[in-house]
Design a protein around this nucleic acid. Sequence first.
DNA 1: TTTCAAGTCAGGAATGATTCCTACATAGCA
DNA 2: TGCTATGTAGGAATCATTCCTGACTTGAAA
Lengths: 150, 150
Amino acid sequence: MKVHPQEIEARFRRHAVRVTRQRAAIYAALTETTSHPTAEDLYRTVKRQQPLMSRNTVYYTLGVLRQAGLVREVNVGHHVARFDGNVTAHHHLICLGCSRIMDVMDDGLNQLALSHRQARGFQVLGHRVEFHGYCAECQHAQENVMKRRE
Amino acid sequence: MKVHPQEIEARFRRHAVRVTRQRAAIYAALTETTSHPTAEDLYRTVKRQQPLMSRNTVYYTLGVLRQAGLVREVNVGHHVARFDGNVTAHHHLICLGCSRIMDVMDDGLNQLALSHRQARGFQVLGHRVEFHGYCAECQHAQENVMKRRE
DNA sequence: TTTCAAGTCAGGAATGATTCCTACATAGCA
DNA sequence: TGCTATGTAGGAATCATTCCTGACTTGAAA
Ligand SMILES: [Mn+2]
Ligand SMILES: [Mn+2]
Ligand SMILES: [Zn+2]
Ligand SMILES: [Zn+2]
C-alpha cells in the first residue's frame, strides 16, 4: 500500500529512525508491494531512482527498520531473506513451486497460545504460522505437465 | 531416540534409499538427538567414527533423506539449516537467545486449517508453527544481566 | 546559521553455508 | 561375479550476507 512521503518521515521519527533519502526509498518500495521482496529485489527497484544506492545500504537499512519494528523478515527455507512492510499480525501461505508468499489474515491464528505445560518454562513472545503448498498458477502448471505426459 | 541398525536399514529400503555406512551413521546421529543439529554438527559427530566423511556427503545425504521423507528441515531465520529426525507431526519453540529448538506436540496445532476463502485457490499441503521467545536458561541469563546493572 | 559528533553511506573485501565438479568407489541387481 | 547407476571425497565455486574503511549527512546544539 502506497504510503505518502510525509507519513514515511513521520513513522521514521516516531520510531527514532533517522530520515534519509535512501531509507525513505527503500521503505516506500517495500510498503508499496505485497510480494515480500528480497534485499536484492529492493536494491534493483530502488537503484532505478537512486543509481548510487549500494547493496550495503539496503541490507543496513532493512536491519535498522527491522529493529525499529517497521519491517519484518519472513523466511522461506534457509536461503534468501524476504521482507515484509506489513507489520500487523498476519501469517503466510508459501508456494513450494514459485516461492510466492501470500498473506493470511486470521484472528484465530493470531491468538494461538501454548499451555503452561507445553511451554516448559519457555517465555513465548510471538509465533509464526506458515502454510506450504502450491499457488493457483503452480497447480495449473503442474496439470499441464501431467497432460503433456499423457 | 536410538534406532537399531537393522531398523535404519529397513527404513532406508522401505523408502528406496540406498544403504551405505555413511548414510546410516548420519541418520543414526540425527535420530539419537533432540537438538535439531546443523549439517556441520552432524558432520563433526559422524566424522569421529568415519574420519573420511566429507561435508558434501552430509549435505547430499540430508537431501536424499529429506526427499525420502525420513528427515525434516527446520529453519531458524535464514541462516543455518537445522535438521530433525522426528518426522511425526509436531511444531517448535525457538529461543531467540541461544537458537535452541524444542519440540511442541499439540494436536490442536497439527490440525490448523484455512477456510476456503482464506486459501484463495492455494492448495495447502502442510503447515508449520514456530513459537519465538526465550528458553528458561536464557531468561535466567537475562535476569543476571539486569542484576549486574543494578 | 554554523558547527560538530554521531550516525550513515558507498564500494569493495571477507565470510560462511551450501552447491557444484570430477574421479574413484560401491550398492544393488541379474 | 560383473555391470551400471548411484554415492562418496575433496576441493573449488557460488552467493547471500556481513564486515571494513574512509567520506559524507543528519540532527541538534551553540
Ligand atoms: Mn506478509
Ligand atoms: Mn522437532
Ligand atoms: Zn506458485
Ligand atoms: Zn535460549
